[in-house]
Design a protein around this nucleic acid. Sequence first.
DNA 1: ACAGTTGTTGGCAATTTTGCCAAAATGCCA
DNA 2: TGGCATTTTGGCAAAATTGCCAACAACTGT
Lengths: 107, 107
Amino acid sequence: MDAETKARNETRARIIKAMAHPTRVFIVDELSRRERCVCELAVMVGADNSTVSKHISILRNAGIVLQEKRGNQIFCSLRCPCVLNFFSCVESVLSASGAASSAGVQG
Amino acid sequence: MDAETKARNETRARIIKAMAHPTRVFIVDELSRRERCVCELAVMVGADNSTVSKHISILRNAGIVLQEKRGNQIFCSLRCPCVLNFFSCVESVLSASGAASSAGVQG
DNA sequence: ACAGTTGTTGGCAATTTTGCCAAAATGCCA
DNA sequence: TGGCATTTTGGCAAAATTGCCAACAACTGT
């Protein structure tokens, strides 16, 4: 594996990894419906504000999420909605595995 | 976030996480071209056989990769080629970030 | 039977990730 | 100006991930 291929795969993994956490999956899913500020997401997730802020910074550094300051709050939105395709692929994987029903994904 | 949503996001994250490592990205990319046995992939990756075997087992448990035993070897192939869409989305993200050139993804 | 190849598993140390608290920065309103 | 809400950052301990070696299992060919 040459250096260029190595760099490409590390870049790919870095961005995919940004999507590889339940809380961040939730945030992306929620932002696909409407923009939200950090504190709203924190309440929905049920975690500390700082925890959610760090999750969002991971998504922002990956280039997946945008943040826009309006007054006291910072509203988050999806920069690249194509990441939502991850979820439909996940459902394909689960269907092929015959394990979808146990995770409530098909309902 | 209700229990069903929580379970769904954990399932999604588990499968996306299987794709969130440079070595596993390489394996999936390589299997999109042709099937390979573990030892071939280990040579290409430049890692121990056992290390690659564990990476493949993560992909297999996620439902992304299939393994078929033929003689002495076990050949791996993609069970769900839709995971390749992850890569094109990654390139969209990089294009939007204007950082694609620094990672050699566009070349 | 025996040696060699291939693949998996267990164990372990090093690294990374995660989530909370505390503290600081910014902006709103009175 | 002072109090309050929102967000980020640093620090830290707990948890998860990673990669190697050693051991074991399965198959091939002699």
